[in-house]
């Protein structure tokens, strides 16, 4: 046998266990951070996967239309700013090359 016997995903299965799977209604934005200084580590467990990966779409007469991803709701503002602890820390020195990696 070449194939996997069972595949268990801890991030996503925990996410689905803790969240309802209903399609969103009017709520299209879920901000990962609520201010400009906090890290996003407080939701780095299942929620990152859940909010970033969960796409939402609409079934209409059997055809599927994707409406978007929660990931598009990650605010740019959530990733800038300063706090007293940052001190000599500089950010933004990586990530300028291009848009994504796929190869």
């Amino acid at each position: 046998m070449k194939k996997s016997k069972i595949i268990h995903l801890v991030l996503i299965s925990a996410a689905f266990a803790s969240c309802t799977q209903q399609k969103p209604k009017n709520e299209k934005k879920v901000y990962m951070r609520s201010d400009t200084t906090a890290g996003y580590s407080h939701i780095l467990g299942p929620a990152l996967w859940y909010y970033a990966f969960r796409p939402f779409g609409i079934y209409n007469n059997g055809s599927y239309q994707r409406a978007g991803y929660y990931s598009s709701a990650i605010s740019e503002r959530a990733n800038v700013g300063s706090n007293p602890f940052k001190g000599s820390v500089v950010r933004g020195g990586f990530g300028s090359s291009t848009f994504h990696v796929s190869s």
Binding site: S88, G92, G95
Partner: peptide, 20 residues
């Protein structure tokens, strides 16, 4: 832990990379 690559920090005092 997860940090976006754009958010990786460099501490010139500590001479190390840091997360958010």
């Amino acid at each position: 832990n997860f940090v976006f690559v754009e958010d990786i920090g460099w501490s010139s005092e500590r001479k190390e990379f840091v997360d958010l």
